[in-house]
Amino acid sequence: MIVAEQKPIRELVEMVKDFQKILVLGCKGCVTVCNVGGAKEVGVLASALRIWGRKTGRDLQVGEHTLERQCDPEYIEELRGIVGEYDAVISIACGVGPQFVSERYPTARVFPGVNTKFMGGAVAHGIWSERCAGCGQCVVHYFGGLCPIARCSKSLMNGPCGGSADGRCEIHKEVECIWDTIVRKMTEQGRLNELIEFKPPKSWTTARDGGPRSMIREELVK
């Protein structure tokens, strides 16, 4: 899933301080799963904004709405007739959401309510971890099913570097050295010889380095 975290409320109220009618817009996709942008969080943020209104003596009207997904025009359409009622929209979907809303409703003032962090998963309740860098050319099978592009601080294809200590990365003791894990796993699988092979430079043409990406699937295009 796409993992996000809420922006500090202080930053959000600064963004919308000149508006009176504010819509907090949630998404039932990834951000609901990572407890940051679903209906529940819409309620909490809307309530916080109302408390701020009370504190600062503002006559705020805060609306709440949660879409099935904010990354699909069909659901964004649902806001027709709603967006126009508000001076500002705070989207608490990933970075895709505020853009889809902005693109569909050109006059709307749309603000991001969360910071989109990474593609990853929940490793424990309340703890998420990055797994994919979206490089566009998956290579995890060379590395015991683990991705050094996303998970090594230096994206080394031929690691581990000299900063690996006790299975931890040099940048922080709380960061796993994925190369340590890769070496251990490949050793256990009796595939160390594959790691000893030189891995040539990666082509980043399929990654963000190749420019903004899009994808067309002819069989699905109407």
Binding site: K40, G43, V44, S47, A48, R50, I51, R54
Partner: peptide, 13 residues
């Protein structure tokens, strides 16, 4: 008790 239950009273006075 959810977070929202704790916020609502503040919202309402």
């Amino acid at each position: 008790i959810e977070t929202l239950h704790l916020l609502k009273p503040f919202e309402e006075g």
